[in-house]
Structures are given as structure tokens and as C-alpha cells.
Design a protein around this nucleic acid. Structure first.
Lengths: 255, 255
DNA sequence: CGATATGTTGAACATTCTCAAGGGATGTGG
DNA sequence: CCACATCCCTTGAGAATGTTCAACATATCG
């Protein structure tokens, strides 16, 4: 089974990936449909950078001269109001794309929550390749439409779900994404290390960290989840969790 | 000044648009960058359809065999939970795109809130043109990224803003979009007919219709807006409204 | 003009937030 | 190896924002 690092330290980060042919997440990345000769062009404008937990990868509003793909680790996309209220608008996991071609300034803050390895492309040359390689633009369009669907799904969570439903929806989402990365099935018992603190979960869910903590405790009491050492989450019955999330009964296994 | 119909009945709908050269919203639409010979190809797979207020344009989950652009009128994109709770995830105004190329089934409900004229393309042939015309795919990517930004902006509203701030944000949003359609400036006093009922506003804002009504009354009492006949809104001082929305002081006029 | 839709306002209630105190894990230096 | 500090998390009590239920008002449309 292919082991994909998400929270753990990649053993010698620089050595993990050198060229695209050994890349662990290329099947999901923006370059997944590129031909060998196209990859050669991409590699010319590519560089890897490792970010430490807590480090800011992109400052919202600042000029951004690269785009790229997260290879290992987890990062958050967030927006804030002037008085400090923060909303996390996306969780970036391995294979996910960062940055917006065609835009000078970043629209969001991007922050590493664990150690994060990013495969970065200089933005301007990348935009030229986008125009030249339909395979690249195709895939970026698909990725963007998927993220749009995910964002709108989350609007339903933020606008209409209760605190308990939000927590359950969030856990189910994370479980789905980790299962996809590990190529696991969701029918069985699934477990993972929660990449976010309670405070970050609250900022994702539009709640306070106290409410997050209370609802997690409630789900634990009700036997829907188990928690070890605050961060390790076990979901014994995924379908039962989906019911708590207020989702379609079959929404978890299709697609 | 160019008059663009949004809420009003288009005088003889079928006659308004015949060929793309007279289209009122082509500068904003998915086809805005197409060359004349590309428009010829698009016109072959194009047809217009008029929807009545309240009519469903697309049923979420059902097969969808067209995509297209709204020419006149306003429609909502929404998702619902099984128990009936509803969240509007987008407001579709003239020039906006409907549907997702490459997907068999619709992800959201689309419903006309006023009389809506849609310029429809058969989905399969449209996808072929997408692959052949970079100008078309380019523009669709840009549109999708803009909608993604808008969706994430709205996540901040739903997750972190108070009822009063949500209403102010919503009014400011609508004002901005109508001003853009009419090519008006936002510095001056702006007015428009609210396309949504109080209930639909509530479904957009993640509130109840009573809270919407109360907060609108409060904004009216505070002199930030004027309302005539329930639907006609006047914003005498756009910047003051932005302050109530909790946004950057300069966020309204740039871009 | 009456009927139905839509919108407003009030009062009681509920969920979530705020403020506060304390518990547990992890890491560092003595 | 232990004491201590820090960070993260949990739990409680009171407060507040928004919801629910209800009555009434105002448009709109036949």
C-alpha cells in the first residue's frame, strides 16, 4: 500500500521528490494529464519549498509570484475581518493546488498547519504554459470546478447546519479525503490524525473553540467517534456519522 | 446609457436577441473572447428559452443536457437538506454562466426568481467546442475562479458575520453587481429592485425571514437604506453601508 | 373588492457565545 | 528524571444573538 505523508515529517524532504516521474501525488495534481514533453517544460520552472508548522505560505493581499501543488502536509486557506474574526475557507491536502493564475495578488492567507512541502511554479511562465498546453488548462478548470462545488457545499454547512451537524460534517469530510489519499474504503472503520487545533476547527466551522470542544465530547459520549490524545480520531461507523451530519444516506460512498 | 433588463419583462423576449452580434451581455459571458468564426459554431448549438418567475430551470441531482448564460432576469442556485432547510449558494444575474461542462448531473437547483431568458448550449457539443476553442475554455476558467472567490467570500459572511453585517454585505453585493451591469459608479446614490423575497434573502444569508425583516427595518431606521414598496432599495451612502458590512473601507471601489 | 402572497413586529425560548477556571500533554532546563 | 512552563483542550455558568410561534399589516392580483 502506498504510504502518503500528511501530518508526519517526510524523511529527508528534499529527497522525497526530485523529478515528476516519482511524484506521489501527480495522479491528482494539476499536471496529472501532462505528457512527458510537457512535464519537461514544467520542471524547468519548478522548485520545491518546505514550510514549517505555523508558517505562512501566502499572505492574503500581497503580490504572489508562484502557484503550485502541496506534496505533503496540510495547510489552511483563510480570510479575516479587520477585527480579527477569521474564516477558514479551505483545507489544502496533498495534491491540492495553491494560487490563482492570472492574478497578481493573493486572495487568501495560506498557512502550514503541519510541515508542508510545496511543488512551486513561477507564476508568469506557468501562465504561458497554461496557454500552450490544453492538458494543463483542462485539469486546472476541473480542479477549480471541484473546489467551487466544495465551497458551495460548505456554504450549506455554515448557513444551515447546527453545531453538532457541522462537527459531524467536518469529520466526515476529513475522513473522506484521507481515505481517498490512502486509497481506503469508507465502509470500514477509519482513523486519522486531525490536522487542525480546536481553534482552527472552530474557524473552519464558524463556531467558537469551546463549542467545538463540547460537541466533540458529545459525539464521543454518544459513541460516534473515539478520540485519543486529543488529535487521533477513530470513526467506527462512517454511515452513522453521516446521519449526524444531516447528509443523504448514500452521500458518502458514491463518486 | 445602455439599459439592461434585470427584473422587468423583456419586451418581446424572442426578439431581444437573435444573433450574438446584438447580444447585450456578450462582453461578460463565457463567449466574450470568441472570434466571429467561433461564434458561428456556437450559434449552431444555441437556443433561447424563457422561464417564468418561480419556475425551476435545473433540478439538482437530475441529468442536465445543457449549459448556458442568463441574458435577462435573475435566478438562484441552491442546495437543500432532506428536512427542507435550504441554502442559496449563488445569485445568477445577466451574463452569468449556468451548468458544469463535463458533469452529467446538476449539482444544484437553479430557479428563476423573475422572468429569465437563458441562452442555452447543448452540453455535449459545447464540451467539444471547449476543447477546440482555447478562447472559450480560458474565459470559462476565469469565470469559475471568480465564482470560487465569491463563494469563499460568502463563506466568511456565513461563518463569521452578525445578522446586521450579513444584510449589509448582501445589499452591498447586489448594489455592486447591478451597478456593474448598468455601468454605474458606486460613489453616487444607487438604487435597485431587490430580486429576492425576504424568505429567499434569509436562505441566502443563513438567517430566518423574521431576522431579515427586523434587520432591514433597523438599517432603515438608522438611515443607511430606504425601502419603497418592500422591494425597491435606495442606498444613499454606499461607503456607510460597507462599514456596517464590516468590510475594508476601500473594498467597494477597487477592482 | 376580496383573497392570497409577502412582510412586519412582539414575546418567549434555545442555541451558541463569552468569560472564567482548571486539566492534561509536551518539551525544556536543572 | 523531575519540576516547571506553555500550549492546547475541557467544562461550567451566565449572557446574548437569533429562532420560533403568533398576530397583524401591507402588497399584489384576480
Amino acid at each position: 500500500m502506498i504510504e502518503i505523508k500528511t501530518g508526519e515529517k517526510p524523511a529527508s524532504a528534499d529527497a522525497v521528490v526530485r523529478d515528476c516521474s516519482h511524484c506521489t501525488i501527480r495522479h491528482r495534481a494539476v499536471c496529472s494529464r501532462c505528457q512527458p514533453h510537457e512535464l519537461v517544460e514544467l520542471e524547468k520552472i519548478k522548485s520545491y519549498k518546505l514550510y514549517q508548522p505555523g508558517e505562512t505560505i501566502v499572505w492574503g493581499g500581497e503580490p504572489l509570484d508562484f502557484v503550485g501543488t502541496v506534496v505533503t502536509g496540510a495547510a489552511t486557506l483563510s480570510k479575516s475581518l479587520e477585527d480579527g474574526r477569521r474564516q477558514i475557507v479551505g483545507l489544502v491536502l496533498p495534491g491540492d493546488f495553491i494560487g490563482r493564475p492570472g492574478r497578481e495578488h493573493a486572495a487568501y492567507d495560506v498557512a502550514a498547519v503541519s510541515e508542508v512541502l510545496v511543488c512551486r511554479f513561477q507564476r508568469k511562465p506557468f501562465e504561458e504554459l497554461l496557454a500552450r498546453f490544453p492538458n494543463l488548462e483542462n485539469r486546472l478548470l476541473e480542479i477549480s470546478l471541484d473546489e467551487l462545488d466544495a465551497a458551495r457545499e460548505w456554504m450549506l454547512v455554515l448557513g444551515r447546519k447546527t453545531a453538532r451537524e457541522r462537527i459531524a460534517s467536518f469529520l466526515a469530510n476529513i475522513a473522506r479525503r484521507f481515505a481517498a489519499l490512502r486509497r481506503q474504503h469508507l465502509g470500514q472503520c477509519i482513523e486519522f490524525d486531525m490536522p487542525l487545533t480546536r481553534e482552527a476547527m472552530a474557524d473552519f466551522l464558524g463556531l467558537t473553540l469551546e463549542t467545538v470542544s463540547r460537541q466533540l465530547s458529545a459525539l464521543r459520549r454518544d459513541g460516534l467517534i473515539r478520540i485519543r490524545q486529543n488529535r487521533h480520531v477513530v470513526i467506527p461507523d462512517f454511515m452513522a456519522l453521516l446521519v449526524e451530519a444531516g447528509e443523504d444516506s448514500d452521500g458518502g460512498l458514491v463518486s
